[in-house]
Design a protein around this nucleic acid. Structure first.
Lengths: 346, 346
DNA sequence: TGCCGCTTGTCAATCGGTTGCCAAGCGCCG
DNA sequence: CGGCGCTTGGCAACCGATTGACAAGCGGCA
């Protein structure tokens, strides 16, 4: 039962003591603080022997540079932020993870800030982390364009799945995956597709709907939208009646969460997927493969998207980017159990 | 006599220009910078009229205080970090989310840093974010105890599901949920339980195994451990043969991911869950309810765990904590489809 | 009118680094 | 042997805030 005992040392406002500074090192090594700074950060600027002595002193004192102090004069923190709408949205994982790996390669730390699907919180969060970081990644943000642009004036900024002004937007090309999906549905005998739309003002929702629309029209399939809906399981459940009433034999949802909600409702209502109608989603989230039935979905390489976002940011910040082969950022269909031959076509 | 005073805003290293400082405000409002600082942060310290004038100037210049500069003298950033092993582990969500909400209530920003289940990366990540923040939450960490203690010397630190030294450890009491689970299995006629263990040195794994062991023994059930295993779906799949070979009619996995992997392998091998044997997990992760079969699991209130971690940190930092009713941090069984009557008992 | 004490604002030091500029030290070469 | 230039280290200003100490201003009261 540890109590709330006061920390021993005076510890300037919460910070615990014992943090060695370059001044301490300088004293131990018998040099000027500025020499310490240079020894540690400017390769070749000080003689090898002095540098060795300084490094030894630093190690002995268990020195940890204070990034805040460094950031003040340089304006660089070597940290970038990813502001995401909703961490529980599985789409976010891989994006963030790709970004994290990439950031590490460049010696940057990635911090993640969530905003719980709330525009106002997201705005506040972004403003809050902005001063700390050298750049910002906004992943599928809901922020109003004007706010994004204002943010971009202050810091380098890259977006994923959202366009605003002239800003960089890393977005997988949805067309190939959707073409595959529509082709797949058509070949199963489906003649009519309902699109269970996502959030009304979502940029990516518009893209998906547009691409689906085009692909369906090109093959002479009927296509219409049901929505808008929140991108959640609950919303998918709620949308079931409308989807069923539409008479479409295939339902493509804005994302996997909606699709899973739809499937759940269908099962609860005694309808059969894919017996009575087929369902497909987007993103291939965690759980899509072990759902019942497992979910046919269009997936993108989110890891790669995260990586690119970081690379793009590095360029803007002025860090040399490691060149890589320029793989296209595409999408592909993953066929599972939730799509099958259309009822009438049996 | 060079033109030193160039108003050309050279955008110091990557930082974009236009950031007004309290000096700018002071000039506009015709006061001293320190007065600006006090006007903005020390209620009542300056006269109402002066404060109004200063605030007007600040608004006009679109002033954004530089938290780095503030943090240098005060040692406070009003930011706390959550270092998590694996963001893709669904257990993390709710913990982080609870922590985030709580942090916001206290005017703190929560940043999340991931370490991808790698001890060395986790150590580096923790060290990196430490200087930025006023406190650290380690969620189900794998760091060696000595490293944790060293970290705790530098910053207030709270852990979730891990004990080390005298440090605060927020951990749900697993006993109630496990008692329920064992009772449930016993009532279904199971006489023998296999525990599919988690990571070898995991603190929480030890707790779960111990509680399961005790509960099973108390009811005269046979119980044994199969492991250790990584806490992943893949590891669950790999463990299937061993689980089946064990002859146990009920398998309790260290967490839901392992359980889901086990179920997947069972289905692939043509075994029936829960027909041939029952499976249960821990955590009630995203997907547990729509898996096939849906998963019986022991769940904890992770949101509450995250909230408490923050509150505990606030106390250590010296922020007044809003008192709340002291709900017990417990666990409970969620019965779904993956557990049923034992084969022999039919 | 003089003194007191409160309010309000200023001064200057400080946090922990970075960096432009300068000078001492040194080797090299003619 | 003297001068040159390069290497190496020191000095001090600076980043943008905070804060203790202090003084000016002011009204109230005796």
């Amino acid at each position: 039962m540890s109590d709330v005992s006061e920390p021993q040392r005076p510890t300037r406002n919460g910070r615990k003591s014992g943090a060695a500074t370059i001044y301490d090192i300088a004293r131990v090594a018998g040099v000027n603080p500025s020499t310490v700074s240079r020894a540690l950060n400017k390769p070749g600027r000080v003689s090898a022997t002095t540098e060795a002595r300084i490094r030894a002193a630093a190690a002995e004192l268990n020195f940890q540079e204070n990034p805040l102090a460094r950031a003040l004069p340089t304006g660089r923190t070597n940290t970038i932020a990813a502001v995401v709408a909703d961490m529980t949205n599985p789409v976010v994982f891989n994006t963030v993870r790709g970004a994290e790996n990439a950031a590490a390669r460049y010696g940057f730390t990635l911090i993640v800030a969530e905003s719980q699907e709330s525009g106002s919180i997201e705005a506040a969060t972004a403003d809050r982390v902005a001063p700390f970081v050298d750049g910002i990644i906004l992943a599928t943000t809901r922020l109003p364009e004007e706010h994004i642009l204002r943010l971009a004036e202050r810091k380098p900024l890259v977006m994923i799945n959202r366009a605003a002004g002239e800003l960089v937007n890393i977005a997988p090309d949805v067309t190939p995956g959707i073409e595959e999906l529509v082709e797949h549905l058509a070949s199963l005998g489906h003649r009519s597709i309902a699109y269970l739309g996502g959030p009304a003002r979502s940029w990516i929702n518009t893209r998906r709907w547009q691409a689906l629309f085009d692909a369906a029209r090109a093959r002479g399939l009927a296509v219409f939208e049901i929505g808008p809906n929140s991108p959640t399981i609950a919303a998918g459940t709620l949308a079931f009646e409308r989807a069923q009433a539409s008479g479409a034999s295939a339902i493509v949802a804005y994302n996997d969460l909606l699709a899973l909600g739809l499937i759940r409702a269908a099962r609860e209502q005694g309808a059969s997927v894919p017996g009575d109608f087929s369902v497909a989603g987007f993103d291939d989230i965690f759980g899509a493969d072990f759902a019942n039935p497992s979910l046919t979905t269009v997936r993108a390489d989110l890891l790669e998207a995260g990586t690119r976002a970081v690379e793009s940011l590095m360029r803007e910040i002025g860090v040399d980017v490691i060149e890589r082969p320029d793989a296209p950022l595409s999408t592909a269909l993953v066929v599972r159990e939730s799509t099958a031959v259309a009822p009438r076509a049996r």
